[in-house]
């Protein structure tokens, strides 16, 4: 299987590969496997995310993208393989150390996953209830919540319920909730799925501005080619449970491999 993988790393310009070498690796996935009964979802997946990088993982629906990202934060345990986030191996952490690590990781869920019995304000405050120490001297959470809401341009929704918001607004509130603890790594699970192209573009712009403002490392899962083109520095194609191809958008979109080509066909 390993021989099938396509890497464009060597074709990179020398100077570029030099800079990536110097960047710290914040996420390292080695040979991760996961099956559900006879359904072999991940069959030896490798991935590395460097500090400050925007990495896009593309794959077809059901290829195991969400499974992979859930293994990263310990929501699912892989059958075998090694996962390390910010120098800590996920499998060895207990509840407390895992929670500490998770406060540095932002997770934007595929369906927003807003708590529908709580107001927008309570939703955004929720991650702060267990991580007070991370907020430092700030005792008034209202200013933090307002700041987070202004960041996503939805300051007026403070006391609304999630059900009163449109899908795009919900996604932005979810983004605000993800950012409230100022995570160092953000995992986006299909941030633009189910949104119209214009709203999708707004979300992508938000993601970019956040990346610049807080210098976060981002792992973006998507099957939206436009999103990948705009935001990715590097891309990984997840096919048949492995990192089938790896490279920049330009490199991959020019590929002649039939499985890679299939992603970029309009």
């Amino acid at each position: 299987m390993t021989d099938e993988r396509i890497t464009y790393k060597n074709k990179n310009a020398e100077s570029e590969s030099d800079t990536t070498e110097e960047r710290k690796t914040v996420i390292r996935i080695r040979d991760v496997r996961k099956s559900f009964g006879d359904n072999h979802v991940l069959n030896g997946f490798h991935m590395e995310l460097h500090e400050g990088e925007n990495l896009v993982v593309m794959g077809r629906s059901g290829s195991g993208k969400s499974v992979m990202i859930k293994c990263l934060v310990g929501l699912m345990a892989p059958d075998s393989g090694y996962i390390e986030v910010m120098g800590k191996e996920i499998a060895t952490l207990n509840r407390q150390t895992l929670d500490e690590l998770r406060s540095d990781i932002g997770f934007l869920f595929q369906g927003s996953a807003l708590y529908d019995s709580m107001t927008v304000r309570e939703n955004i405050e929720f991650p702060m209830r267990r991580h007070k120490e991370k907020l430092g001297a700030v005792s008034d959470t209202t200013t933090l919540v307002m700041e987070a809401l202004e960041n996503v341009g939805l300051g007026h929704t403070l006391d609304l319920m999630p059900a009163e918001l449109s899908g795009g607004m919900q996604r932005r509130i979810a983004l605000a909730r993800t950012l409230i603890l100022k995570p160092k790594i953000i995992l986006y699970d299909e941030p633009t799925s189910g949104l119209d192209p214009i709203t999708a573009k707004e979300i992508i712009e938000l993601m970019r501005s956040i990346q610049i403002k807080y210098n976060t490392s981002s792992l973006i899962i998507t099957h939206d080619v436009d999103c990948a083109r705009v935001i990715s520095e590097r891309m990984i194609l997840l096919v048949d449970g492995i990192n089938y191809a790896e490279g920049t958008y330009a490199e991959l979109s020019a590929s002649t491999d039939p499985k890679v080509e299939a992603f970029f066909k309009k």
């Binding site: 859930k70 934060v73 929501l75 929670d99 998770r102 406060s103 990781i105 997770f107 869920f109 595929q110 369906g111 996953a113 807003l114 708590y115 529908d116 929720f126 991650p127 267990r130 991580h131 909730r177 603890l181």
Partner: peptide, 10 residues
């Protein structure tokens, strides 16, 4: 996935 979201937010 609200339960998962709670889990990851500590």
């Amino acid at each position: 996935e609200q339960i998962d979201a709670m889990e990851v937010s500590g």
